[in-house]
Amino acid sequence: MIDSLKRIVKAVGLPRLTIVLFLVALLVIGYVNRLPIPMLLSNSLVRVGMNGIMVLAMVPSVQSGAGLNFGLPIGIIAGLIGMLVVMEFKIGGFLGLAIALLIACVLGVASGYVYGLILNRVRGQEMMIGTYAGFSIVSAMCMFWILAPFKNPEMIWVISGKGLRTTLPVSDSLTQILDKSWEFPIFGIKVPTGLLLTFALACVLLGVFNQTKLGISMRMAGANPAFAMSCGINVDKMRILGTVLSIALGAMGMVIYCQSLGLVQLYRAPLMMAFPAVAAVLIGGASARKATVWNAVLGTVLFQTLLTIALPVTRSVIEGDISEVAKTIISNGMILYALTRKEGDG
């Protein structure tokens, strides 16, 4: 009995088991306290769709051997620029979204390439360098936001007539454009079909890529560089490819995130955004050396549902907004847990 229990714990993984149990407990408390469970579930669906692609961005980076991408803010900045450009020119609707995604993707690929070149020279230190590369870019961009030549009066400070505001509302025709597509209610849960389909599409595309020759080469380079080299694979190129994919996914993920949130948050807002994404993929069962699309999906669902449900439930029990604190503790704790395990362990 205890043995089989141990086996289950081992198969599912202690972190996931804990979180699932915690989630169930939260739902029970929520139900007892008569919280609107369907609304909570709708919210968590939206949050899964919003954050999913940025979590997915961790997968190619890990698979190619470049490790967890703590430099995600580089991609996030690319995504923000994409959004800002369409907002500046007041392009709305799906065209606006498409242009924003395109700009994000192009900038993401370009910056990902440069970042990949750097990472190839700092093997073994990717996480630390990535973190501070991200921090540096975010703080450098703070200066850019002030000086950038944006003219749209809705975006710049009223008084000085210069510099982007901290929080910019996305135009109505762009706000939640994906969330609202084919949205339908079921058991009182609103399903943001378009948003979820976009996430699903990204997952499928990455999944298919993983099965192509190039994808397999990339995964081999990550799993064992010496092995890959002996199979005629250029390991450095594959690491760059993984980094480019990761940063580009992060950039496009940010566009999706912004349209869903209806806000573009600048300045210090992107600073810590890599950590929840890293934590989510780890919660999904990935490690710094191994990650799958499935890890990203599972991790996003568990983590985001937990955060959405934890907020109102705890509020009904304790006073004050504990959700940000919970997010900090869970995501950083998860990363710590992963860091202190021996290499090679799941």
């Binding site: 020279r121 921090f135 703080s139 200066m143 002030i146």
Partner: peptide, 28 residues
């Protein structure tokens, strides 16, 4: 730059940037 905030962000950038560069040099 005609903007005090730029200077403020500049010093934050220097803080992070110098750490990033030091780490880069170290791993090289």
């Amino acid at each position: 730059m005609g903007n005090a905030q730029v200077g403020e962000f500049f010093r934050v950038f220097i803080g992070y940037g110098i750490i990033a560069v030091a780490l880069l040099i170290h791993s090289w």
